[in-house]
Amino acid sequence: MSLIEKVTATDTPLLTVAGLTKNYGARIGCADVSFDLFPGEVLGIVGESGSGKSTLLSCLAGHQRPDLGQIIYDGQDVIAMSESARRRLGRTDWAYVHQNPRDGLRMGVSAGGNVGERLMAVGARHYGDIRAAATDWLGRVEIDADRIDDRPRAFSGGMQQRLQIARNLVTGPRLVFMDEPTGGLDVSVQARLLDLLRGLVRDLGLSVVIVTHDLAVVRLLAHRLMVMQGGRVVEQGLTDQVLDDPQHAYTQLLVSSVLQV
């Protein structure tokens, strides 16, 4: 199904953000950000360091409280909902993939335990079932089943990142936030990870908000693109349209800065 068909098939957005603003004292974190995210859609957010990408993402995921604005997820006001409801959302319907897998994984707990944690957090109490789900998910992110009892410490950076993705997707979330998921990985590992992510997003019909400074990542994954500078959205549109025909001066600079090999 193409993006156009998807968008017309489901005309109610999964996530609606309106006028989102977060200031750090007098400094702007992000200002007046608005967008709609539809089911199955991947939204890329690009911009240089300090442009407010990560602030925006952490406000969306409920890690920080925005100063102004509205976030509506599936008809519920995320900012107004109680903390327990928001945290429950965070371990069922939502997922958050950190840039550094060490932030998203429990390093002292085996791979199987890491994947199983979200299942147990939503009430799974059958060891055999949890183990089977963990084995299944390790397979889907291309980690050998015999590594299930190894701790993430013993894994390479790319494997850790794939483990983090498995751990997040095991409860079947509908909305995934990703903060530079390919940062710090070498290019061949990056390529494999992107390939994997693209497959998972397509197969599971996930909605994704992905923050990155790597334009190749959004070119591959994102349907739509938002370009941020100084905490504000300076340009948004379809990914290919923004990257091939940038209108804003900053976007033009960003696109022309990519090295051509």
Binding site: E83, S84, R87, R91, R106, V109, S110, G112, G113, G116, E117, R118, L119, M120, A121, V122, G123, R125, Y127, I130, R131, I148, D149
Partner: peptide
């Protein structure tokens, strides 16, 4: 406070796995 006790079972899971 929020009755989030899934982590306690992670410890028991680790016991059985090991």
């Amino acid at each position: 406070e929020l009755e989030e006790y899934g982590l306690m079972h992670v410890k028991l899971y680790e016991d059985i796995a090991r």
